[in-house]
């Protein structure tokens, strides 16, 4: 069947509405940084585009040689989410490294500071 079914179009549309509401809530309550909201706004926009203009999906599926347009939609969404998750993994990994370094350095500076204080105390006693 070379069309996008109505139930699927409605589902895609509702999906985009959900994405937009959640993301606008998060931005309003400052729960995410603006730069992180861009992906989801674009993602929601893509869902609306496909649900309103199914001809886009039909066109893409004919180019890619995928029989059913709905499969083409799924493939593109999975690909986008996969990319996003990959970059998230990199970010989390980097963040964890930075966080570890921070925690370790704080602990070492505290220790060195303690030692210095201890030294000062000893010197004071010596000079007395």
């Amino acid at each position: 069947m070379n069309i996008l079914s109505w139930p699927l179009r409605i589902l895609l549309f509702l999906g985009s509405v959900v994405v937009f509401t959640i993301i606008s809530q998060c931005i309003r309550k400052r729960r995410i940084q603006l730069k992180d909201g861009i992906f989801w706004v674009a993602f929601g926009f893509l869902l609306i585009l496909v649900s309103v203009f199914p001809v886009l999906a039909i066109w893409a599926s004919s180019i890619l040689g995928i029989q059913s347009p709905s499969n083409c939609v799924f493939l593109i969404l999975i690909f986008l989410l996969g990319c996003h998750q990959f970059f998230l993994t990199i970010r989390i990994s980097r963040l964890e490294i930075k966080n570890n370094q921070l925690v370790q350095n704080i602990a070492i500076y505290r220790k060195l500071e303690d030692e210095e204080k201890h030294h000062e105390k000893e010197n004071m006693l010596l000079f007395r």
């Binding site: 570890n100 925690v103 370790q104 350095n105 704080i106 602990a107 070492i108 505290r110 220790k111």
Partner: peptide, 22 residues
Amino acid sequence: YPCISLPTNQGIAGAVRTGMKY
């Protein structure tokens, strides 16, 4: 006992690395 105290749990690798930095 001389002690370096990490503010959060780092796992064995982070703890040993802290000792090595010191």
